[in-house]
Amino acid sequence: MSEASKNNLVIEARGLVKRFGQEILAVDGVDLAIEANTIYALLGPNGAGKTTPIIMLTTLLEPTEGSAKVAGFDVVMQANDVRKTIGVTFQETTLDKELTGRQALNYHARLYGMSKDQRQAKITELLVLVELEDAADRAISTYSGGMKRRLELIRGLMTDPNVLFLDEPTLGLDPQSRARIGDYIVELKVNRGMSVLLTTHYMDEAEQLSDKVAIIDHGKILIEGRPSELVDQMGADVITIAGQGNRDDFIEKVNDLSCCETITTGNGIIQIGVDSGSRRLVEIISLANERGFTVEDISVAKPSLGDVFLKYTGRQFRD
């Protein structure tokens, strides 16, 4: 890698490993190379190891092995420099519910050494953004889940960070708020040059927002790429089949067909990426009958990131 492109990396991780005790291997050798001014999404089922890398990159825990840099600073040796340049929204709430929303934002900014005028201007701007002006002077304990989430999100933006970490930022938000937050994340990238590393449970969100996604499971990155690239790998259409019978034989025969680009078997569901769904449907059903596999449900659809996810993790996204 040339020096120029290397300097353009805002997050670099090499062989990142995190163990908890002897038993649990939460992160198992993760490499990351995230370019500045991009949105990067980590996708994976529950417990896959999405949060733990974020915890290490945001300097809360030191890696067991490996190293990482954020904005050019080492997360262990130069932790304080990393902290100055990042904003974080953790997956689980870190709000002090006895404070009012305004107090929470104000104290947060004070910890980062912002002046009073800066703080007030920023607080007003951000409260309007997520429509919390009216609730700003109420105790956070009286907020709904979505209101807390929105508050926590803008708290991470108080300090105009260069690099933003968002661990499931839109969890628990209604579709309208999600869309709004999504637009804003893109705006942060486009207009303010921020770089964003996020995790999400919403495939459509990952597909729309992110420049790159990585699918992670059992602490390892299984595949990484632009969402469109990953989806294209699946073929033009995806045929999804549920059924019973001589499964293995059927799958083997499908694999032999030249039209079929991918086979996935997870949760008893068979997915076949094909060049043209409408043309191959009949062919595949008759092959199933021939091989003694009873089709109970079959559908044809354009492939999505969800199908990619299923292919690599063997699990439906909502597992």
Partner: peptide, 12 residues
């Protein structure tokens, strides 16, 4: 309550 995480992520 996780409030400490906010402090730990701050440059202090």
């Amino acid at each position: 309550q996780g409030i400490v995480k906010e402090y730990l992520a701050a440059p202090i």
